[in-house]
Nucleic acid binder design. Structure first.
Lengths: 196, 196, 196, 196
DNA sequence: CATTAATCGAGACGGTACGTCTTGTCTTGCA
DNA sequence: TGCAAGACAAGACGTACCGTCTCGATTAATG
């Protein structure tokens, strides 16, 4: 994560303990009290640090949330041997990620700011969208290589459909995501195969 | 829209002019300055009313945004004669709706609060999700009746995929939605037809 | 009391019940909650009337308080046969008046506004100061006629000393006024007699 | 002046500049616009500070006014060599103090709240009444020592008479205080001498 | 070892939004 | 017209939050 100001070489070095405390406190507060309960003072108090220590690392609250709730949350999807299997695992991963209160509250809180903060939107794309898209591409490329798909599908559309469906299911419709992965994987798999 | 306190029968009746002014000012400010620039004082000033007139109608800022940016924005989808046609029109409608700055800024701002405000989530479902789902069901029912689909598909999943894809495309990936309706309609249509 | 707008001759006549209810409610609220708890809405609610009925009678809150807490509270001082006796009775009267919570809270609340509201100051003088001064003059004149005083003293100074002492004793120093009348009467009587 | 929350030992210390700015702005606004024009926002704006800086120091608006308009306004009375001289100077001092618009508007505004706010009344007594009473006692003691008075008079009554007379003259009767000091000193001196 | 420079916790700072309250006016329907 | 009820515009109240700054005390690396 790009820092507000990168640490200088001279003087007292930054304490890793503080980095960790900020991230933990942010996650805890997001999980407990949501976007509304996440104040910089509360983070500092919970982390047992001063506010300056936060702003030395992150220029804004959004950057801090980004680092705590979004950064590094996209794992690689393992090769299960079939497209349907891969998609099921992928869906399970996305569901698991968005089901965690800290991640979801952080993510949704950020979404509302993206529209009026281009810099934030860029960082957001870099940390979340790009890794996700790359993972999706890998999964689809494997299916093509296996011969399950005739041609490389529209990755961007696939990403929007797949991620968007989970987002909508959990946050907009607020339904139980228990059997969503299986259903979504089957639905999407059918669409991909049908594309000539 | 359910009010903060429902107007009593006696005394001076509420002025429709004020309702209208609040809604207009909210939409304008959302469009111009986004979620961040939408302050209650600004709404009151722009609407030429007092803040009490707002709080007499809406218990919270979120309720006000809900009424101004979400309520009554879901139109019926006309029958184009084919599933693909219907889905294209439906996608165009959703895209048009989410492309309007007032609606999108309002909607995204609300999304972040839904996780920790059950009452708001209920109102949100009632005003947005339910009408959308009902419209989706109608479109799919027509396709079944036409014989385009063998059985009634999973409406909930369809709604999540369709709406979620647009949401993700526009707000998460932040891509140009120009040719999204056609691509999304074709993709979804294929999946629905493939379902046994 | 001069009204905000004098009642017109035509139409429905004003109800005396309403006048009485306003005055009573004002006095009760002043006594119970002081100047701070006296709001126009509270008076209207307690009196079981509409706010318009109050503003039809009094142009401002201050006028209402003036009418309820100040007007007509200055009784004549009976002739006890001696200056000391008269002064004692006069002091007892003033103490009694200022000891009533409604009157005192009303009076003190008004005092704070007099400095920046000339119209109110005029009404205040007319309703309270003038009657008091006239009463004082009568008492002193009687003492001159009796031969207790050689010449007519400075009535204005006497009024300020006498009323001000009680005011200061009760509200500024916040002492028990039980034996104030006797002490004040003796002190003032001595001063008046000593004046050559 | 006892603060809302006393400053802690750690952290950034409070700035004296801010204390001074609050007091000055309060005095200026009281003088210019009276009790009614003294709003917390106006004080903050005029002082060039945030409202939080005020509430960090004073729990309520009244406390702030107390500190700005009352605290430390009671000077010692110099020894003129005679009781009449001392009393004249004392009266002049009181008149001068109450003639200043900031002090008078602040003081009168507070008087109205004393009846229903015991804590405020206590602070008021501590900051204004006690110093005044102590000053009065000194003046009277000097007169006894000089032999002008046979015995120590009733200080409490004297204080009520002397201060109350000025209060009543200026604020209740609203008369010109130009020759009040001389008249009041002569009147009170006579009474004190006459006491056996 | 002594100096230097950035770190740390704590909390004050200016600015600003929040949701509530109050004042004096206005607008209903009923009497 | 008067009346009870209550909506209206304006704006102050006291609280909370953000991002910056200032204090005294630490803590490495450098001279």
């Amino acid at each position: 994560m790009a820092r507000h100001r990168s640490p200088s070489r001279t003087g007292r070095p930054r304490e890793a303990r503080v980095d960790e405390a900020i991230t933990s406190a942010t996650r805890e507060l997001l999980a407990e009290a949501g976007h509304h309960g996440l104040t910089m003072d509360a983070v500092a108090r919970r982390a047992g640090i001063g506010k300056a220590a936060i702003y030395r690392r992150y220029a804004t609250k959004q950057e801090m949330v980004l680092a705590a709730a979004v950064e590094g949350t996209v794992p690689a999807t393992p090769d299960t041997g079939s497209l349907l299997g891969d998609l099921t695992v992928l869906a399970e991963t996305v569901v698991a990620r968005l089901s965690h209160p800290a991640a979801s509250n952080g993510l949704l809180g950020l979404l509302g700011e993206l529209g009026t903060d281009a810099a934030l939107a860029g960082r957001f794309a870099e940390l979340l969208i790009e890794p996700e898209r790359a993972g999706d591409e890998l999964v689809l490329r494997r299916a093509v290589d296996r011969g399950e798909l005739a041609a490389m599908p529209d990755v961007e559309l696939f990403h929007a459909v797949f991620g968007g469906a989970v987002l909508s299911w959990i946050f907009v419709s607020r339904l139980d995501p228990a059997d969503l992965p299986a259903r979504l994987a089957r639905f999407t798999c059918a669409a991909l195969r049908a594309e000539r």
